[in-house]
């Protein structure tokens, strides 16, 4: 079974985010790391290939620069190889442009399953995976929390507003997996060493036969026109519990007429 896993490389989430003053695009210079949300997809892919008794996990990523450190993390977990689409023209991509690029990269190799996270930590549109499915002309099950594959059929538990739906589908298929579906493994020392020699194929838009006017910054047909601070909520009264803080809470509840 061959699985393509989308892995987004993002600026360190602990560092404060910055926007370019003119374009308001998110500044993505410097080191990028694997989005934590994608570690679940990588883990699930490794487990499914294992259960199928063979196959490859290929990572697919798009970034405006040639950054690979996030991909090395996922390779160290056990993925076989990676494809990175990197092109300066990709800066300022929106979700649809991103999906077009990722779909074009995925299409170059036959796949049974495409796995992504439900939403990225920095962009969180949550639309990229299903856009990829539509571009590939296949079914998609977003918000998957359990996946079992038997032969060419997938059985999936999908989150719903009130609980979950049981979904059945033929492969090929795109799924987006929620956090917490599996426990992502930590790369072992051996894994980290092995990752150094695993192949990362680097592709430009031209390699994919994509027109720079339809994707990337020029292809995005939406733009940010203004940015402002949100009104901060004021902190109120803080009390240290000396054993009697519950009385304060009861008083507050009375004041609000909740009790």
């Amino acid at each position: 079974m061959n699985i393509a896993v989308c892995v987004k490389q993002i600026p360190d989430p602990a560092a404060p985010g910055r926007l370019a003053p003119d374009s308001f695009h998110l500044i993505r210079e410097g080191k990028l790391v694997m989005d934590d949300s994608d570690s679940y997809g990588v883990e699930m892919a490794l487990q499914l290939v294992d259960a199928a008794g063979g196959g490859e996990v290929t990572l697919i990523s798009m970034a405006p620069n040639g950054e690979t450190s996030g991909l090395r993390t996922a390779l160290a977990m056990g993925a076989s190889r990676a494809v990175l689409v990197s092109d300066v023209r990709l800066s300022g991509s929106d979700a649809l442009s991103t999906a077009k690029v990722l779909a074009a990269a995925i299409k170059r190799n036959p796949f049974d399953l495409v796995i992504s996270a439900t939403e990225s930590s920095d962009g969180y549109t949550g639309t990229v995976p299903v856009q990829i499915a539509e571009l590939l002309g296949v079914a998609a099950v977003s918000f998957a929390k359990k996946v079992t594959i038997t032969g060419t059929r997938a059985l999936i538990q999908r989150q719903s507003e009130s609980g979950y739906d049981e979904i059945e589908s033929e492969l090929p298929l795109v799924i987006s997996v929620t956090a917490g579906v599996v426990e992502p493994r930590y790369p072992s020392f051996k894994g980290i060493m092995a990752a150094k020699s695993k192949p990362i194929e680097s592709l430009s838009l031209d390699d994919l036969g994509l027109d720079g006017n339809n994707v990337g910054g020029s292809g995005a047909r939406e733009m940010i026109v203004a940015v402002r601070e949100t009104e901060a909520r004021q902190a109120g009264q803080v009390v240290e519990d000396d054993g009697e803080a519950f009385v304060k809470i009861v008083e507050y509840l009375e004041q609000l007429k909740v009790v």
């Binding site: 079914a139 998609a140 999936i156 609980g163 739906d165 049981e166 979904i167």
Partner: peptide
């Protein structure tokens, strides 16, 4: 083919 995924049961 994009319609090949089917809901077989719902659980609340």
């Amino acid at each position: 083919p994009s319609n090949s995924a089917k809901v077989i049961s719902s659980h609340s």
